[in-house]
Design a protein around this nucleic acid. Sequence first.
DNA 1: ATCCATCTTAGAACCTGTCTAAAGAATTGA
DNA 2: TCAATTCTTTAGACAGGTTCTAAGATGGAT
Lengths: 141, 141
Amino acid sequence: MQTTSEALENTESQTRLRDAGLRPTRQRIGLANLLFAGDCRHVTAEELFAEANAAALSVSLATVYNTLRQFVDAGLLREVLAEPGRAYFDTNISDHHHFFHVAEGRLEDVPADAVSIAKLPTAPAGATVERVDVIIRLNKA
Amino acid sequence: MQTTSEALENTESQTRLRDAGLRPTRQRIGLANLLFAGDCRHVTAEELFAEANAAALSVSLATVYNTLRQFVDAGLLREVLAEPGRAYFDTNISDHHHFFHVAEGRLEDVPADAVSIAKLPTAPAGATVERVDVIIRLNKA
DNA sequence: ATCCATCTTAGAACCTGTCTAAAGAATTGA
DNA sequence: TCAATTCTTTAGACAGGTTCTAAGATGGAT
């Protein structure tokens, strides 16, 4: 174990958590380290729970769910709906879209500039657009 | 009750079901009559179940779920994912998009020509585009 | 009318996700 | 530093939506 890099990671995650108004607890730091290790991760709660266990991070499933929700509310994660009955969490919070590989149940990022929406309807009276989700559903060729 | 129009409706639904390769059973005909009475309906399984009961159509919840799935597989309905943990079924199967009123949990059709997608990425190797879902999420102004 | 395949059903089972209440950990202020 | 306070974590129960099971009922062909 590289103490140095681990310490750096923790510092990064701690700062990120503090900036989001969340106490940097052992569990949140650990989950943040897993989530934000690479970019463009798309995980489900159960997947993250399994990863945490594999990484010897002792954390309960309830905490994984709580933490994911808090991260979404804090703008650290984005929730993506691609399949009924299962939520995906995307670590890429910049404006972008998704491929969804139906057979594999796998999401893949599509950069915002790869999709251009030339025309959008105006929102109905009394409503404002929160977000436009584009999901390109893919089958095996 | 206008026997004539009911008979016509049944005939229509029966034909629709037969064409889709589904036996026109009492339950399927009744559910099809409810679903395809108007157009642009967006129902959940529980809503359709309640409607069936209200219309004195004796049908079990399991059959409502089975039937909705069969209708989707047969191309008679389109499943729309807008909220985690709940599936909506859209009777409009032509190419179009959706507004989703987040606070109310309500879908609203957006005609295909109200959205113009000027650029789409090419599908990854080995995959073909099945569909492009655009959901415009709305908040109260 | 009879048969066979398909369909429906009640209820159990399942899965994802949330809630509860109690114990534990991070911050605060003296 | 050391409570006191507040927030967090946890196991397990619970909830909502959906699917499964196995048995009985029905539709369609003969």
